[in-house]
C-alpha cells in the first residue's frame, strides 16, 4: 500500500508497464472525477481548521489556495502521465466497477458506497481501499450522513416520532448497518463491514477524516464536474478550474445574498 504520493506514482508506473490501467476514470458520468479533491481536501482542513469558515466568509477563495490548485494539478497529471484509461470520456461508473473487479484496472478513485454494488456482481473480487496518500498519514473525506426529519405541523406527528425512535433503536440500526455495510455514524453500533470499508475504519476512528468540501460550502459548488472534464481534456489548467469552481460559488453566494459577496 503506497504511503506517499510518490510511492503511488511509482506503483502506477509499474502497473502501467504490466499492461494494466492504473486508474480507471469515469469521465463520461463525470461525477466520480470530483472525489479526488472532495476527499483530498480533508488534508487541507486538517492543517487549517478555519479554512472553510474563511471560504464561506469570502475571505479566501479556492483559486487562492495553492495546495488545492496543486491537488488539481496532481489529478490532471494522472491523465497526462498516461495512468488513466484511454478514451476516459467514455468511462462510466458502472464500467469502473467492472474494470476494478476483473483486474483490468488496478485502482478507482471513489468512495466505499461502490463496494456493495461491486460485491453483489463479483462476490469474490479481491478489492480493498486506502486513503489517497497526499500525506504520510493522510486524511480521508467522508460524504456526511443524512438526517431524517418529521414535519411538526403534520397530522401524524406522534407516528412520525415513533418511526424515528424505531429507526434509532440499536437493534434496527444493527440490522440496517449489517445490510448496508457502511461505517455507522452512531456510537456504539457495531456492523459487519465489507473488506474495503473495514480498511478505512481505523483511519476514520482515529479522527483522520473530514466531510467532502461540497457539504461544507455555504452554497452549491455548481457544476464542478464539467470543470474537471475540461481539466482532463486539457481545455483548462488547474488554476483555471479552481477559478471556475470559485466563480460557481460566487454566483450562488450572490444569488443567496450572503455577507461578504
Amino acid at each position: 500500500m503506497p504511503r506517499t504520493y510518490d510511492e503511488l506514482l511509482a506503483d502506477a508506473e509499474k502497473i502501467k508497464a504490466a499492461g494494466i490501467t492504473p486508474f480507471y476514470e469515469a469521465g463520461k458520468d463525470g461525477w466520480p472525477l470530483q472525489v479526488f479533491t472532495f476527499s483530498g481536501f480533508a488534508n487541507l482542513l486538517a492543517k487549517q481548521p478555519d479554512l472553510m469558515d474563511k471560504i464561506n466568509a469570502h475571505q479566501t477563495t479556492f483559486d487562492q489556495i495553492p495546495e488545492f490548485v496543486d491537488m488539481l494539478q496532481k489529478q490532471a497529471d494522472l491523465v497526462k502521465k498516461g495512468y488513466a484509461n484511454k478514451n476516459l470520456f467514455s468511462g462510466t461508473y458502472d464500467l469502473s466497477l467492472d474494470e476494478l473487479a476483473t483486474g483490468k484496472s488496478a485502482m478507482v478513485i471513489n468512495a466505499d458506497w461502490a463496494l456493495p454494488t461491486l460485491l453483489a456482481k463479483y462476490p469474490d473480487a479481491p478489492v480493498g481501499m486506502f486513503p489517497q496518500p497526499f500525506e504520510a498519514d493522510s486524511y480521508v473525506g467522508i460524504s456526511d450522513p443524512q438526517a431524517a426529519f418529521a414535519f411538526k405541523n403534520s397530522k401524524n406527528v406522534e407516528q412520525a416520532k415513533d418511526l424515528l425512535a424505531y429507526i434509532a433503536e440499536p437493534e434496527t440500526l444493527k440490522t440496517y448497518y449489517d445490510a448496508a455495510k457502511t461505517m455507522p455514524s452512531w456510537l456504539g453500533v457495531e456492523a459487519a463491514l465489507n473488506g474495503g470499508t473495514a480498511d478505512l475504519q481505523p483511519v476514520v476512528e482515529a479522527g483522520r477524516a473530514a466531510p467532502f468540501f461540497n457539504g461544507l460550502t455555504a452554497v452549491s459548488v455548481g457544476d464542478y464536474t464539467k470543470e474537471l472534464q475540461a481539466l482532463y481534456g486539457g481545455d483548462k489548467t488547474a488554476a483555471e478550474v479552481a477559478k471556475a469552481l470559485q466563480k460557481n460559488i460566487d454566483t450562488a453566494a450572490k444569488a443567496a445574498g450572503l455577507a461578504g459577496w
Partner: peptide, 19 residues
C-alpha cells in the same frame, strides 16, 4: 460535456436550474 464542448442553451438552462 466533455467540459462544455457540447453545451447548448437548453442544457445550460437545465444546469442553472440544478444549481
Amino acid at each position: 460535456g466533455p467540459g462544455d464542448a457540447t453545451e447548448v442553451v437548453n442544457t445550460y438552462i437545465f444546469d442553472r436550474f440544478s444549481d
